[in-house]
């Protein structure tokens, strides 16, 4: 399974969170809003002018800047994005 970061997902794509690499403060903010490994998140839209992402987790909707989204690692749940490249980041488990 290819691990990628949240920022590289396309609009409408859904993925499961595997790893948060943000610094402590941001990590806590993310956790408080429900970003945890194992949770499914989808990209609803991206704002113009390189603005933030609009994300949905269950019924919670959140805006997250692209820079911060790069610190949230996910695996896509869409099969067509499952190309065979080996992922060296590894180690994170995906249920």
């Amino acid at each position: 399974m290819l691990m990628t970061n949240l920022n590289s997902l396309a609009i409408g794509e859904a993925a499961v969170i595997t790893l948060l690499t943000a610094e402590v403060r941001l990590q806590q903010q993310l956790c408080a809003l429900g970003f945890r490994p194992g949770r499914q998140v989808s990209v609803v839209r991206k704002a113009g002018f390189s603005g933030p992402l609009h994300l949905r987790m269950g019924v919670t909707e959140v805006m997250l800047r692209r820079r911060e989204a790069q610190q949230v690692y996910v695996v896509s749940v869409e099969p067509e994005h499952d190309d065979e490249t080996d992922c060296s980041v590894g180690g994170a488990e995906y249920r």
């Binding site: 704002a47 113009g48 603005g51 933030p52 805006m63 800047r65």
Partner: peptide, 13 residues
Amino acid sequence: SRAAFLTDGLMQR
């Protein structure tokens, strides 16, 4: 909150 979402990209600059 939506206003913040829409303008964040410009304001970031």
